[in-house]
C-alpha cells in the first residue's frame, strides 16, 4: 500500500474512499469460479457417468476420450493416452484438461477476473492492492500469458471435436437418426464455445488486428469488424460458455445415473 501513501502525495489514510459496494464483484467472481473448480475437479476424478449410450451423449469434460479406460463407444480418436501412471489409474478427463484450462487461464478476460478477485491486484479500481511489489506480466510465470494464442489454436480443435460430438448425438431412441434434449444441450454447448473462441482477442488480432493497412485486405477487414462486434461481448461469452460446459456435463451425469431421463423428440 506504499503507493497511495507515498511521499508527496496527499496524506490520506484510507485505502479507498469509495462508498459503493466495490467488493461485490470480486467476491461474486471468487464464488462462481471456486464453485466451478470444485464441481469440475470432482467430475474429472469421478471417471464415470460421462457417456450415455442411448443417444450417444458424451460429456464435454471427457471429450475427446483418449485412453483405453474410456467406456465403449467413446474412443473416436483411438487410445493414444495412458490409462494409468505409476500404478495409479488416471481419468481420461485429466489427459485433456490442460487445453481448456490453459485456454481459460491465459484468456485476457479471465486474467482480469482472477487478477482482480483472487490476487486482489487491484481488487477494484482506486482500491489499493495489498501487495508490496508488483511486476505485472513481465516475469515468470506470468510472462507465459503471452502464449495465449497456442491455447487458442488448441481450443479450435476442441471446438471442432465437441461440435462433432453434438452431431453424433442426433440419435433417436432406437439408435437411428433422431433428436433428444441431450442433442440440444450438446449443440448449445458447442455454439457457446465457438462464440467464446471467435470473440477472443487473439482471434481478433489474427483475422485482421495485426494489419497496418486494412484497405489492402478488404476481406480480412470485414472479418475483423465482425469479430470486433463479438469481441465486445467476450466477457459475457466467457461466463455463459463456462456455465454451458458445466450444465452439459451435469445433464449427462444426471441422465447416466438415471436421475432423469433424456427426452427424445423423435
Amino acid at each position: 500500500m506504499a503507493g497511495v501513501h507515498a511521499e508527496h502525495r496527499a496524506h490520506i489514510q484510507e485505502r479507498t474512499l469509495r462508498t459503493d459496494r466495490w467488493w461485490l464483484q470480486p467476491a461474486a467472481t471468487v464464488f462462481v469460479l471456486v464453485s466451478f473448480i470444485i464441481y469440475a475437479t470432482f467430475r474429472a476424478f469421478e471417471n464415470k457417468h460421462y457417456f450415455v449410450e442411448k443417444g450417444e451423449l458424451i460429456s464435454p469434460f471427457y471429450s475427446p476420450c483418449l485412453s483405453d479406460a474410456c467406456v465403449e463407444g467413446t474412443q473416436l480418436f483411438g487410445t493414444l493416452g495412458p490409462s494409468s501412471l505409476w500404478g495409479f489409474a488416471i481419468s481420461p478427463a485429466l489427459l485433456i484438461l490442460i487445453f481448456p484450462l490453459g485456454f481459460r487461464l491465459t484468456c485476457y478476460y479471465y486474467r482480469k477476473a482472477y487478477y482482480r478477485s483472487f490476487w486482489q491486484s487491484p481488487p477494484a479500481c482506486a482500491v489499493a492492492e495489498p501487495h508490496k511489489k508488483y511486476t505485472g506480466e513481465t516475469k515468470q510465470p506470468l510472462i507465459l500469458q503471452n502464449g495465449h494464442r497456442w491455447f487458442f489454436y488448441a481450443g479450435l480443435v476442441f471446438n471442432a471435436i465437441l461440435t462433432y460430438d453434438a452431431f453424433l448425438a442426433f440419435h433417436g431412441p432406437d439408435g437411428g437418426f433422431g433428436m433428444s434434449v441431450g442433442t440440444l444441450v450438446l449443440l448449445a454447448n458447442a455454439t457457446l464455445l465457438w462464440l467464446y473462441s471467435l470473440s477472443c482477442h487473439t482471434c481478433r488480432h489474427t483475422v485482421g488486428g495485426r494489419l497496418r493497412h486494412f484497405s489492402k485486405h478488404p476481406l480480412r477487414y470485414k472479418l475483423w469488424t465482425r469479430i470486433s462486434i463479438l469481441n465486445h461481448h467476450h466477457a459475457n461469452f466467457a461466463w455463459v460458455s463456462l456455465f454451458g460446459v458445466a450444465f452439459a456435463d451435469l445433464y449427462i451425469r444426471l441422465v447416466s445415473t438415471g436421475a432423469i431421463t433424456n427426452y427424445f423428440f423423435f
Binding site: 485476457y108 486474467r111 487478477y115 505485472g136 506480466e137
Partner: peptide, 23 residues
C-alpha cells in the same frame, strides 16, 4: 512497461471519453 499492465481495465472504466483503452 507494457508488460506491467495486467489488463484489469480500470483505465477503461474511468476514461471520460469512453476510449476502450484496454480492448
Amino acid at each position: 512497461g507494457l508488460g506491467m499492465c495486467n489488463i484489469t481495465k480500470c483505465c477503461t472504466e474511468v476514461c471520460p471519453e469512453h476510449i476502450r483503452i484496454t480492448d
